[in-house]
Design a protein around this nucleic acid. Structure first.
Lengths: 169, 169
DNA sequence: ACTGGCATGTAAAGCGTTACATGATTTT
DNA sequence: AAAATCATGTAACGCTTTACATGCCAGT
């Protein structure tokens, strides 16, 4: 986020109330210590400014070293895919659950994914011309596309589950 | 896993080298303490038996209380979707990366997802008649379907990314 | 002689969440 | 008068990973 411009810890936390890139979250209690670590490592610096709040704010920005480290991090392969999905794990043991309760669980999840999908589609509409790689906005657009694909896949799977459970009742 | 039959900690760890339900992992150093907690809570019991190894093995099985707790857990709504995906986060900052390196990152990821997809499709073929809910095998089948959908969505997104990066070079 | 499978654990460190802690200004 | 926004932190707890620790037996 700092690569997109200077920000306070508060700004970052506020933006993260909705997951950055649709797939990452952090609370302010994680952000402030993390900024201190980056500062100690010389990857960011800050400037103190007065703001509407009671405390002076610390406006952080990336140093050239920070920018370089980020640049390198981007192209190092990530650890394996997120292998922790509670709903899928529950599904694994679903044969011993109460079928109507189970059906409701998946119907609720389906509604949730459909709502998110509608919201993402609205956001997609806000981009006129799709941004090209090299533009910071490309990051926003590409992650949104991932979110869209994810929600579609998820909604479809939940719909299939509901259908399976309906048949068996 | 214990709901499917009695097992030792070693058995569970061995099965978890590949994620259970395609979306959950654990190492033996997490499994053994966890079994001790379940034991203390009366959710499992074990029987000591001789095996090929040097130590006697502890064969665990669910108690009625354990089975009941699991049954309840299955239908309690999970915490929100897994919002932590390193590759997507990298994508968010991808505009400052070296384009050829970035393209390679996604090409590698694509290959990985395609390989997994092929493997899952093979596994799908091993089920003849799809199991019905109520059958323990339904858990295996339903989670496999989720894995298939996930890999398809992921592969498609990676393919799109590679295409975007090819155009811009 | 070495590798891999069987078999169970503990310890340390890192990461993440929730709760604790303070306090001014602006809006309702 | 109360609630929301701005603003920064620390502490406690829980989960996960990695490393440490042991040791027999079977196959190559």
């Amino acid at each position: 986020m700092l690569a997109r411009g200077e920000r306070t810890g508060y700004d970052i936390a506020a933006a993260m109330r909705r997951p950055v890139s649709y797939f990452w979250t952090a609370g302010h209690s994680q952000i402030h210590p993390e900024l201190q670590k980056l500062l100690a490592g010389g990857l960011v610096v800050y400037e103190t400014r007065h703001g509407p709040g009671p405390q002076d704010k610390k406006v952080y920005r990336l140093t050239p070293e920070g920018s370089g480290a980020l640049r390198e991090w981007v192209t190092t392969p990530p650890r394996e895919r997120p292998e922790r999905d509670e709903l899928v794990l529950k599904t694994y043991a679903s044969w011993l659950a109460d079928p109507p309760l189970l059906k409701r669980l998946f119907a609720d999840q389906l509604a949730l994914h459909e709502a998110r999908l509608a919201e993402y589609e609205r956001e997609e509409g806000l981009f006129g011309e799709p941004p090209r790689p090299g533009d910071p906005k490309f990051g926003n657009y590409a992650t949104l596309r991932c979110g869209l694909g994810y929600e579609r896949h998820r909604a479809e799977w939940c719909r299939w589950m509901v259908a399976q459970l309906s048949d068996s009742l």
